[in-house]
Simulated assay, not measured.
Amino acid sequence: MISNKGFSLVEILIAILVVALSGVGTLKLYSYMEVEKANAAMFVEAKLIAESQLALLQTVNTTGSICTGKTFANIQDCVNEQDEGSPFTVTVTSIKSLTHESAAGIVETYGNVYKVTVTWADRNNEGKTLAIPVSVSKYTNLLE
């Protein structure tokens, strides 16, 4: 009677194949996770840029604002400049004017709604966009 005290060549080859396939899958998962982590970091940075632009629009005509002298007519020209080589682009567009009709029948604009848009290309070279609306009123202490 012969007893086997080891593994056959076929069993060893199958074990190596299983380990190799699981290693390849793990490497693909790791590279995917790295790309998604970088894309998430870019989204967070774009959100911070958009929030900074929102704050800038809401400080128009306040002391120390870089947008001193801007009005509803040209407030969208007041944009935070990005560093040279930055993947982010910021634009401000007017969505609508907020108006009120007084008792005398005069229609008066009391505020505007703007859309702050930040665009960039992610690690896959796909264009991404983040858009946040903001309203600015002339009846606050922000505009005269």
Rank of each mutant, 00 (worst) to 15 (best):
A20L: 14
I12H: 09
S3C: 09
A41C: 04
L9K: 01
S135F: 05
K28H: 12
Y30D: 07
K70R: 11
E84F: 02
L143V: 11
N74R: 04
I14T: 06
S3H: 14
L21F: 07
N4T: 13
K115S: 15
L17T: 15
A131F: 04
F7R: 09
T91A: 05
Q76T: 15
N125R: 08
T99L: 08
E11F: 05
T129I: 12
T117Q: 05
E108N: 15
T109P: 01
V19D: 08
E108C: 08
T93C: 02
K28L: 14
S52H: 09
V79T: 01
I132T: 06
K70T: 03
S102W: 10
I49Q: 07
Q82A: 02
L21W: 01
V118E: 03
I75D: 08
A104I: 11
I95W: 00
D83R: 04
T63E: 08
S8V: 04
E144L: 11
V35N: 12
G127Q: 14
V116N: 01
F72Q: 04
I132L: 06
V90T: 01
V90P: 02
Y110A: 02
Q53D: 06
N74H: 05
V35I: 14
G127F: 10
S22H: 03
I12F: 11
T129F: 07
N4V: 14
S135V: 10
P133E: 02
E81N: 09
T93L: 06
N124Y: 10
N141Q: 13
E51T: 09
K96V: 12
N125D: 13
N74I: 05
I14E: 07
I95M: 00
S8G: 09
S137G: 10
N112V: 13
A40Q: 13
G105C: 07
T59M: 12
S86P: 01
A103T: 08
S8H: 03
V107H: 06
K37I: 08
V79K: 00
L142F: 11
V19Y: 11
I16S: 11
V107I: 10
L57A: 06
K70G: 04
K28E: 00
V44W: 12
T62M: 10
T68L: 14
T63H: 06
K128R: 08
S137P: 00
S137T: 12
P133A: 06
